[in-house]
Amino acid sequence: MPDVTNTAVTPEAAAATPAAPQHSKKPEKSRSLLQDAVRDLVRRPLFLIASGIIFVLLLMAAFPTFFASADPQLCELSRSLQKPSADAWFGYDARGCDVYARTIHGARTSITVGVLATLGSALIALLLGLVAGFYGRWVDALISRGIDIVMGIPFLVGAIVILNTFRDEDGFRTGGIWGVLTALTVLGWMSMARIMRSTVIQTKQADYVTAARSLGASTSRLMFRHVLPNALTPLIVLATISLGVIISVEATLSFLGVGIQEPTISWGVMINQSLGRIREALHPLLFPAGFVSVTVLAFIMLGDAVRDALDPKLR
């Protein structure tokens, strides 16, 4: 019987023996905070629903004729207050105008005013909040007291006062969209400025800002390269939510008769025109008011989703 206990493995046999496969795992690539936030956002149904609604609204504002082929300015009294039908999905108003066509075309004015007023307010808030929070001391005190003074003015009262300054010698309003934009921008930046100021104060005390300062970084580099990019998140979230609110305020001013006027079409103008005959027909009021509500809700939902994704404490 052969002895197998002392059997030696020759080098040739060892070389011929296949080595066990080694599974090398690739190290996972680290993602930035922004990449994590985007990945988290696309998984949120709230964000997807709000983004879809806003995308459709933006398409309506950019290409209204793609959604409604009827002329929004064509009005016939013979069709006055006719109810929704296959020919006119939203019916006709008191003047015989197609409510659907006017609602679609009114999206451009309402959304344009909201976006531009929000951008203007956010820019003012960014500059004042950044300067106040970064420099502090008397600069902060001066800007903060100015914010308190402007915040003491009731929004609607201040807007009405500003809009009434846009009048000609005969007393007719001349401001139009630009008058409403001016009023909403002048009165809409205070809350965002306060949020920006507090975020800048917190950010400038971070270790990386202290390290950059000790390495001799200039004031402008500290402010715009280290503090500003890391203090923008709350401002972006609040501006997104404020956009919907500003659209509703524009509709309120037009509803009160001090905002946008005919022949410009906006949702607020349509609501104002439908009130006189509200007991006879409700549809000229419901559809533009419904679009205002859905738009405001969509932007608030979008702001909430962005806040939850960008704030590490809420994730």
Rank of each mutant, 00 (worst) to 15 (best):
T185W: 06
T185Q: 07
V186G: 01
V186R: 01
L187M: 12
L187N: 02
L187H: 04
G188V: 06
W189T: 05
W189H: 04
M190H: 03
M190I: 05
M190C: 10
S191P: 03
S191Y: 14
S191T: 15
M192W: 04
M192Q: 13
M192P: 02
M192K: 03
A193L: 11
A193Y: 01
R194D: 02
R194P: 08
R194T: 06
R194C: 08
I195F: 12
I195Y: 06
I195W: 10
I195K: 11
M196H: 04
R197W: 11
T199D: 15
T199F: 03
V200Q: 02
I201G: 00
I201L: 14
I201H: 01
Q202H: 11
Q202N: 14
T203S: 10
Q205C: 05
Q205W: 00
A206I: 05
A206Q: 15
A206Y: 11
D207E: 15
D207R: 11
D207S: 13
D207W: 07
D207N: 14
Y208E: 00
Y208I: 00
V209T: 00
V209F: 03
V209W: 03
T210Q: 15
T210E: 13
T210I: 12
A211L: 07
A211V: 02
A211C: 01
A212N: 01
A212C: 10
A212E: 02
R213S: 11
R213F: 09
R213N: 11
R213Q: 15
S214I: 02
S214T: 12
L215C: 06
G216F: 00
A217R: 02
S218I: 06
S218P: 00
T219K: 14
S220R: 12
S220G: 11
R221W: 05
L222M: 13
L222T: 02
M223H: 03
M223G: 04
R225P: 01
H226K: 04
H226R: 06
H226E: 10
V227W: 00
V227Q: 00
V227H: 04
L228S: 03
L228N: 06
L228M: 14
P229A: 11
P229D: 12
N230T: 07
A231Y: 08
L232W: 03
L232N: 07
T233G: 14
L235M: 07
L235V: 08
L235N: 01
I236Q: 04
I236S: 07
V237G: 05
V237H: 01
V237A: 12
V237N: 02
L238F: 14
L238D: 14
A239E: 08
A239D: 01
A239M: 08
T240L: 09
T240K: 06
T240C: 09
I241D: 04
I241T: 07
I241R: 05
S242K: 08
S242D: 14
L243K: 06
L243A: 11
L243P: 04
G244I: 09
V245C: 10
V245I: 12
I246K: 15
I246G: 05
I246Y: 09
I247D: 08
I247K: 03
I247W: 05
S248H: 13
S248E: 15
S248D: 11
V249Q: 13
V249F: 12
V249H: 10
E250W: 06
L253V: 06
L253E: 04
L253G: 04
S254N: 13
F255K: 03
F255V: 02
L256A: 08
L256V: 07
L256F: 09
